[in-house]
Every structure is written in structure tokens, then in C-alpha cells.
């Protein structure tokens, strides 16, 4: 299922952990989707002196985090900003198609961590992004409701989506 590079990074992940008093922290993902990633940066002279990650997720998500930290370490911030999810996946010799959407979040987390560092430097305070995603009711009373996962029409009192089997009650 996974390339040998992915398996190598999954089995021997590089740069796992947290950095105390990190200069920048970036968090992406939520448990609803399946994967969560946190990137910690230590910056010196506008370059990434040290980088660590914590990840909750599948083999691909862990390998992505590990590869990303290897790619970013030692780079200037300008260089690091050029790292994309695509280039991380390419460095891993590809990821299974269904993992590209949810597990390939490493570069997003890195960019958020860099932004966090730059915000702090500039004195900007941004609200922390929420991790939990909720199904928002955007339709009128009595209107049609659709499953947030597979988009099939469901009714107000459906406990689960007959399309994908997903529970709806908690989100509804």
C-alpha cells in the first residue's frame, strides 16, 4: 500500500516531539477528519534552526510529518514557505490517492507555524483556529437536509445516513 520511503519514515519518524518555548506553532486537522498535526519551530536569523512534530493519524500522516520536518530543517523562512503538500508527497515517492486529501497536511501546518512566528514578531494576535468541525444547519425549517459526508438527502429525524452509514444525530 505504501512506498518504502513512507514506511521508513513511519517506522523511524524523524524529529518527533515538542519544542519548549517554540518561536512558532502550527496546528491543522481535527479528529472528525482523522488526522491532527502540530509543528513546533525554533527560528534563528530567519532560518529554521529546529523543528519538531506531534501527529495523531495514520501511517501516511506520520510519514508526511517526518518528511516535512526533514525538508524544512535548516531552510530560511523564505525557502520553507515554498514547501508544498505536493512536494512532500513527491519526496515520499507518492501517497495512496485516498490519503492525499486528509493525511497530506504537513506543509499547511508548517506554513501556519511560520505565520505564527511572523505574527508574534509583528505583534499580531489572531484567534486560535477551531479544531472541531460541526455540521452547520444552513437550511430553512422543513427544508431539505443533506448528509454532510456524502451529500445524499436525509430527513431531520434520521439517525444515520442511509447513503454512507455515518451517524447524523450528533452533528444534526
Amino acid at each position: 500500500m505504501y512506498s518504502s520511503t513512507v514506511m521508513d519514515h513511519f517506522k523511524n519518524p524523524r524529529n518527533v516531539g515538542e519544542i519548549e518555548n517554540a518561536d512558532g506553532i502550527g496546528e491543522v486537522g481535527n479528529p472528525l477528519c482523522g488526522d491532527m498535526m502540530t509543528i513546533y519551530l525554533k527560528i534563528e536569523e530567519d532560518a529554521i534552526k529546529d523543528i519538531k512534530f506531534k501527529t495523531f493519524g495514520c501511517g501516511a500522516a506520520i510519514a508526511v510529518s517526518s518528511m516535512l520536518t526533514e525538508m524544512a530543517k535548516g531552510k530560511t523562512l523564505a525557502e520553507a514557505k515554498k514547501i508544498t503538500n505536493k512536494s512532500v508527497a513527491a519526496a515520499l515517492e507518492g501517497l495512496p490517492k485516498n490519503k492525499l486529501h486528509c493525511s497530506n497536511l504537513g506543509a499547511d501546518a508548517l506554513h501556519l507555524a511560520i505565520q505564527d512566528y511572523e505574527d508574534k514578531k509583528a505583534g499580531i494576535v489572531r484567534p486560535k483556529p477551531k479544531r472541531e468541525e460541526k455540521h452547520e444547519h444552513d437550511h430553512e425549517e422543513g427544508g431539505k437536509c443533506h448528509c454532510p459526508y456524502c451529500n445524499i438527502e436525509v430527513t431531520e429525524d434520521d439517525l444515520f445516513c442511509v447513503g454512507c452509514g455515518k451517524m447524523l444525530k450528533k452533528l444534526h
Binding site: C58, C164, G165, K166
Partner: peptide, 14 residues
Amino acid sequence: CAAGALQASHVLLA
């Protein structure tokens, strides 16, 4: 993630 469907199990949520 492993299920391929990328959805948490409806049984466990139930």
C-alpha cells in the same frame, strides 16, 4: 483512515 471511506465507524459512533 484504514477503511478507505475516510469516515469513522457508524457502529462506534452509535
